[in-house]
């Protein structure tokens, strides 16, 4: 469960968002400049709200009144960025293993194999990120985030940098993740079709305000 009730001023722009989501995939929908990425960055702890609270699974990670701000690295979240942000000095296998190492988790070859198979990246393990296509990079980034065993996965327009054909290549993997990976997700997009396929709940943002909240039908 994700509970968000925050305010943040960024220059001229002000963001006010309040919602509680129980869905497996919470779709954050809005045009560019509506504050989607800022909101996700606040959930990730990369941006600090001016006022308000954020709770992940009942665990309060931000509460400005109580002076609580859990740093990003202790939030146990996964974050898939639009630009995969793989570590260029590590190969795919090392990138995938990074979160496990940083969190001091025991090796889990079964889980590793499951995710690698789910995302079809077994053939890429020895390669460097510079030698991957955009779609491959994004699949590896998904795997890397999942293998850190997050309790919430944030995806900020993960298909945004890909062309139509690549989008169609990745979308089925995301659907499989939703149905099989058992991690709640926040999925940011300005693409109605994408959200229709993936989201179970929608938070609609317009110029920094939540304008509607509910099932996928609010997209209509």
């Amino acid at each position: 469960m994700l509970r968000v009730d925050v305010e943040k001023k960024l220059g001229e722009f002000s963001l006010e968002a309040s919602f509680t989501s129980e869905g497996r995939v919470t779709g954050l929908f809005g045009a560019s400049g509506s504050g989607k990425t800022s909101l996700v960055n606040m959930i990730a702890g990369l941006l600090r709200p001016d006022r308000g609270t954020i709770a992940i699974d009942g665990d309060v990670v931000d509460d400005t009144a109580a002076g609580i701000h859990v740093p990003t690295y202790r939030r146990r979240i996964g974050y898939v960025f639009q630009d995969a942000r793989l570590f260029p000095h590590l190969n795919v296998a090392q990138n995938l293993d990074y979160g496990r190492r940083m969190n001091g988790l025991a090796a889990d070859p079964a889980q590793q194999k499951r995710i690698v198979d789910l995302l079809d990246i077994g053939a890429l393990l020895d390669r460097r990120p510079g030698k991957l296509s955009g779609g491959e990079r994004q699949r590896v980034a998904l795997g890397r985030a999942l293998l850190a065993k997050p309790r919430l996965l944030l995806l900020d327009e993960p298909l945004g940098a890909l062309d139509e054909a690549r989008k169609l290549e990745i979308l089925p993997y995301l659907v499989r993740l939703r149905d099989e990976a058992n991690v709640p997700m926040v999925y940011v997009s300005h693409d109605v079709a994408e959200l229709r396929q993936l989201a179970t709940q929608i938070v609609m943002l317009k110029q920094g305000k939540v304008t509607s909240f509910g099932g996928v039908k609010v997209l209509a």
Partner: peptide, 16 residues
């Protein structure tokens, strides 16, 4: 942004 990515994966600042 690579350092941010590392942080979201659980790396404390000195580990980043």
């Amino acid at each position: 942004r690579l350092e941010q990515a590392a942080e979201t994966l659980g790396a404390a600042p000195w580990k980043v």
